[in-house]
Amino acid sequence: MENQEQIKKKLLELLPDYVFRRLDESDREFFEMHYKEFEDIEKEVEEVQIFFEKLEQMDFDRVFQSHTVNTSVKVLNKMERKSRPQSSLRLVPKLALPLIAVIVIFIAIQLDIRKGRYIKIDQAEIAKLSEPIIIDSSIIDEVNSQDLVRLIEYAAPQKEEEIDDEEIEEMNNYLAEFMNNEVGVNYLDEFNIYNYFDYIDEDIFQEIIEAK
């Protein structure tokens, strides 16, 4: 039984070479003597035989030949080109990018070092900042609501007074009376003349200033 298994194992190993006709005489005789004892091996031989016949029809040599035409010429040309002395300038495009990258990294590192150099951390100041802020409640009590209102009014942006046409007309009437000596200069004080600076003629304004 064991002998049969050993024979079968050997037959399987020899099978491809048998079909492809590459067995030496002794192995071929052994194969032919035994392979028909095993039905499955006999079947394998038939199948591999069909495969081999198809394989033999294929012309791989032609396929490989068509892709290796002039390989020797191409190889020798390439070798000749490589052996020629080449200008060192050819390295410039290859080295440019890595060189730029190195410079940028160097500058970045330098900037970072300098940045670190000017920042002096005073540990005592940091300790002070972390201390809690104590608010004197007696000061808060002194601030009453009126103070707060004043403070808000003071802080609020002053709204620019708008001058309408009626006021300008009234001003012109005053000025006309002043120019005709119908009223004195003090009469104008009732009206804040400086608010109307932009609307008063320069000569009139100078006359008012002189009169005052």
Binding site: F60, H67, T68, S72
Partner: peptide, 21 residues
């Protein structure tokens, strides 16, 4: 010799090409 190089390449070019393929 280029002649020797050519002989070597011609002898083995299909072998090398087939492996690469």
């Amino acid at each position: 010799s280029n002649n020797a190089a050519t002989r070597l390449i011609r002898k083995y070019e299909k072998f090398v090409f087939a492996i690469a393929l």
